[in-house]
Amino acid sequence: MVPFRLLVYPGFLFLFFCAMLFSWLDRRIIARVQGRVGPPWYQPLADFIKLLTKEDVLTTGAHALASSVLPMVSLVSVLTAALYVPVAGVSADSFDGDLIVVLFLLSMPALTYFLAGWVSVGVYSIIGGHRSLLQYFSYEVPFLIALAGPAVLSGSWRIADIIAYQGHTIWGALTQPLGFLLAVVGLIGKLKRDPLDIPKAKSEVVGGPLTEFSGRKLALWHLALDMQTVVGIFLLVNLFLGGSRFLTGLPAFPVFALKALGVLLMLSLASALYARLRIDQLATLGSRWLAPLALLQVAVVLWMRG
């Protein structure tokens, strides 16, 4: 069973499928909001395959080894994190404290992203890299605190336990609405999506840290980011929306899928409805509002636990 769980469901193949699907849905939803049609369903896959076949160009002065290893590290840490995030209650592995490991692994891409800018030697890459670090400190703190809420409430740092706890009480999003919203905002920052796509804002720093990447490496970067989206959404569904549980008797998988799509819809709408913030505006927002509010939420949770 373990190889199947690692490679097929809920492992690599399933995640790959979800990454393509979510990426397509995201583009489609945004297009609809903007009065466009949007791409056909196979577009993300076609983009991926096309990038794989493209020439791999390395800029002069760039570190060859580092620039090939970094996208892989990014992808691998996302995939490893995915092992502990249950999909409809099924996960490849689970142990006490796996939430902390997942959070750590999900921060890895941010680091590799910064390093990617650093090793590829280009002004836009380096500025983008700096920005990604600054952004990291703005969203990561509130994100971590917000995710600590459900764990503290259920008294366990094991994702499966948190789901179970919500099963016999109510959804985390209902007990901690603020924490849920902050987690969504943090996730947007983590995924560098509009309106927090500051490190890779096209009209400011071209492609950010990934400006000088091409071919297979770029494809891996994109895949890692798309998979991170999927894992992040699944994590929020598990921690805040009660995983696959919704009224007893309903089948687990469709319920889980619907909730995940709901979170995706939130992300897409946020992309479509807001202008990009500036890095200093995000830093102010993070330190003045997001982090204190997250702390407030945890305080409320502690009070609720009595």
């Binding site: 009065g35 466009r36 509009d194 309106p195 202008a275 990009r276």
Partner: peptide, 16 residues
């Protein structure tokens, strides 16, 4: 300008 500040929705509406 909407495109440059990352507000693609207004960009698409205006150009439509």
């Amino acid at each position: 300008i909407a495109r440059n500040i990352g507000f693609d929705t207004i960009f698409n509406y205006a150009w439509r």
